[in-house]
Design a protein around this nucleic acid. Structure first.
Length: 434
RNA sequence: GCGGACGUAGCUCAGUUGGUAGAGCGUCGGGUUGUGGUUCCGAAUGUCGCGGGUUCAAACCCCGUCGUUCGCCCCA
């Protein structure tokens, strides 16, 4: 009976090649978030159960979290999302923080579910939140940030589309326009969420199951469909256009235009799972049919911070999973080939490890990442090894080089070879790495 | 939690109507001891995911189980 070498179900090992991709992705995410003035924070992976029970939504706590009791009898959850945590942190220093507060993090999150494409048990998620802005300038900023991330990865606008909706609109339609009670409204909301996964007849028959005879009499189904079919705000029935139900969506869209974002659209079927959203919600879809689900989503949740017993803080934020992001990058060929950490490989001739030490130390002190071949194998094998590791530049160091101070620097991809002194080697490696 | 597909060498896979396993790539060694990518020669490696069952005989059929994957639920 031997031990399995597989990682835990739904979780990934990151071998150096994988980790390199993750480092690249996170690097871009951090760069863009910080370009918008966001500060990085972090928190424990464990949280008390209560903060999820409070407002996260139902199933995620009951069935999709890792819950256990610690040795002190406390109910503990491995965080399935970051929003309650960041809300807790903001609430904890509610009075002393300077608003608007711009925070981001890339936490790992755990959900107990069946793994499938784009959904694993452990994933990392960029969380970007802006606290203290009640106007849709916050939504516009955050979505613009998302757009900049895509651009920084080299994506073009046709590769993704930004869907927008407003919970206030949804609530108005369900409660006031259709006059549904709370449980019915909730059920219809869940149905709308799944609308695109079924055909129209199926959707209508499911609606029939939910609506009362009275509601059917009032042609609730037809009314709802006419709203869900809207491609833009102007398609909506006139009776909805009174008041300022659309004001936020309207302003968000014009704000996005002003910010140079083009590929967004009004999507009345967009719901989002969590119940804590209170205003604009958005999701971004990969247009590649291979990745047919939301790759990121977020919205306004003005009530969460207040749950911790402090004055509420208006908040807009989103989460962007690393699995959906890497699927996106791979599908659109946007994942660059990434060089290994070492940018210089030293091949040794003969037993000169100790004599070569001062030379190698100088190279490292100059900022080069130097991997030394300690195998004692034939020179040809050392070249093969460098190539296999993906290190392009090899410095040959033997007795005569150490004595003369003239080294042979070999470029494995161009097959060129230069005779250089130590400073020349340093310059050449730096030039090669841009 | 529910449904489908799959599980053969390190990797990608082949294995005909059941007769105890192969290829390519990779790995290792070599083509005279200080120069690699192409080439040539040679070698190693599998309890055919695991456990039962049917059979004279199972990688192949049946059951269970674990894992992978796609979808449902839910969500990033």
């Amino acid at each position: 009976m031997s031990l399995s070498t597989q990682p835990y179900k739904g979780a990934r090992d990151f071998y150096p090649d994988d980790k390199r991709k993750q480092k690249y992705m996170f690097g871009v995410l951090r760069t863009v978030a910080e370009r918008f003035g966001y500060e990085e924070y972090d928190a424990p992976i464990l949280e008390p159960l209560e903060i999820y029970v409070a407002k996260s939504g139902e199933e995620i706590v009951n069935e999709q979290t890792y819950v256990f009791e610690d040795r002190g009898g406390r109910k503990v959850v491995i965080r399935p999302e970051m929003t309650p945590t960041v809300s807790r942190m903001v609430a904890g220093k509610r009075q002393e923080l300077a608003y608007p507060l711009r925070w981001y993090s890339i936490p790992n999150l755990w959900r107990y579910e069946r793994p499938q494409r784009g959904r694993l048990r452990e994933h990392w998620q960029l969380n970007v939140d802006i606290f203290g802005v009640a106007t849709v300038h916050a939504e516009v900023e955050v979505i613009t940030l998302v757009n900049d991330v895509f651009k920084t990865f080299g994506a073009s606008s046709d590769m993704y589309s930004i869907h927008l909706n407003d919970r206030k609109l949804v609530n108005f339609v369900l409660r006031d326009y259709l006059g549904l009670d709370e449980p019915t409204a909730h059920a219809v909301g869940k149905l709308i969420d799944r609308m695109n996964k079924m055909d129209r007849d199926e959707f209508i028959s499911k609606l029939d199951d939910v609506f009362s005879d009275e509601q059917k009499q009032a042609s609730a189904t037809e009314k709802l469909l006419s709203i869900l079919d809207a491609k833009q705000l102007s398609d909506l029935p006139d009776t909805l256009k009174q008041g300022d139900i659309f004001a936020d969506l309207d302003k968000t869209m014009s704000g996005l235009k002003a910010a140079g974002v083009t590929n967004f659209l009004f999507d009345p079927t967009l719901m989002r799972g969590f119940d804590y959203y209170t205003g604009i919600v958005f999701e971004v879809f990969d247009t590649d049919p291979e990745n047919n689900r939301a790759m990121l989503g977020g919205g306004r949740y003005d009530g969460l911070v207040g749950l911790f017993g402090v004055e509420p803080v208006p908040t807009v934020g989103f989460g962007w999973g690393d699995v959906t992001l890497s699927n996106f990058l791979e599908s659109h060929n946007l994942m660059p080939s990434l060089a290994p950490e070492a940018n210089l490989y030293v091949a040794l001739i003969g037993d000169v490890v100790e004599q070569a030490h001062p030379t190698i130390a100088k190279l490292r002190a100059a900022g080069l990442n130097v991997a030394v071949d300690l195998s004692g194998r034939k020179l040809g094998d050392q070249f093969k090894n460098a190539e296999k590791k993906g290190v392009n530049l090899v410095l040959v160091v033997g007795q005569s080089e150490l004595e003369s101070g003239s080294y042979s620097l070999k470029n494995l991809s161009t097959h060129s070879e230069d005779s250089l002194d130590l400073n020349g080697v340093i310059d050449a490696v730096k030039a090669q790495n841009g």
